[in-house]
């Protein structure tokens, strides 16, 4: 089994705050890999690093053997055609309807005839079950539907790797179920490699083949969903079980409560 993406010893800072402090992750080809962690741990940043939109301060990221951050602009764009990314908000073009949104990457990167593009778009729409919604504008879609459209657009060029940024957050149970099923079936049917970034523990564990948990800029645990579930590390347990207090404190760092109250009286 080969690894499609390898992240080794990546350090990344933003505004002087270390977001990653030596992260190593390998993403095997053909599998669904989940990257989990509390909000604000830079999961989206990780996807942008893989996509080459951000540059790590230190470390190396390779996608299908090519170092993303030493590629020329032209080669990077070529590599990106093999990647699809589903943004948290969908990122649909608001001035184009559903059909044109999905046709966009095809029109930009291929010289196919209009008939061919139409067929391809309809195939993708059929996969996500929205063939009937092709003439709607993005503003007329529900949150779950616009994610499915964005998913259809992300797979329009038949990429090898598809990255999902919080695909499940903020969805009702039905659309969550639909998305979970879609992610799994697309991965298996198209032979994709999927990376899911999420903090929805149960759903993510149910579709992932392999799980990484990151917190405080480091990988705090990884393994198959079963192995993760059995792991006894306190930090991991707090995240997975959703405990309000633990290694990640309930209180934002502050001085002692008594002292704070007294100061208010004095002044």
């Amino acid at each position: 089994m080969t690894n499609l993406v390898e992240i080794s010893n990546v350090h990344f800072q933003r505004n002087g705050r270390a977001i990653f402090d030596g992260v190593d992750i390998v993403i095997p080809a053909g599998k669904v890999t989940a990257i989990m962690g509390p909000s604000g741990t830079g999961k989206t940043t990780l996807l942008r690093l893989i996509g080459g939109q951000l540059r790590p301060d230190q470390g190396k990221i390779t996608v299908s053997g090519q170092n993303v951050h030493t590629l020329s602009r032209k080669l990077l764009f070529k590599l990106r055609k093999k990647m699809g990314m589903l943004f948290q908000s969908g990122g649909l073009f608001t001035h184009l309807n559903v059909f044109e949104n999905i046709a966009f990457p095809l029109r930009e990167h291929t010289k196919l005839s209009d008939d061919m593009i139409r067929s391809l778009v309809l195939i993708k729409l059929e996969m996500v079950g929205l063939r009937g919604a092709r003439d709607l504008m993005p503003s007329e879609l529900s949150g779950g539907m616009s994610r499915r459209v964005a998913l259809a657009r992300a797979i329009a060029l038949d990429p090898q790797l598809i990255m999902y940024d919080e695909p499940l957050s903020g969805q009702d149970p039905i659309s969550m179920g639909v998305l979970v099923k879609l992610i799994r079936t697309l991965n298996d049917a198209l032979g994709l490699t999927s990376v899911i970034v999420s903090h929805d523990v149960t759903e993510t564990l149910s579709i992932a083949d392999y799980v990484y948990v990151i917190a405080n800029g480091k990988v705090i645990g990884h393994g198959t969903p079963d192995a993760i579930d059995q792991n006894k590390a306190a930090q991991l347990r707090q995240f997975l079980d959703g405990l309000p207090d633990g290694p990640v404190p309930f209180h934002y760092p502050a001085k002692a409560f008594n002292q704070d109250l007294l100061e208010g009286i004095v002044t």
Binding site: F77, P105, H109, A150
Partner: peptide, 22 residues
């Protein structure tokens, strides 16, 4: 600005389309 806020520019970039040009 709105295209940027709604990640339209980012997703364009990830589709290997240069937003500067498009």
């Amino acid at each position: 600005g709105l295209m940027k806020a709604t990640e339209q520019l980012s997703s364009m970039e990830m589709m290997a389309v240069d937003p500067l040009q498009r």
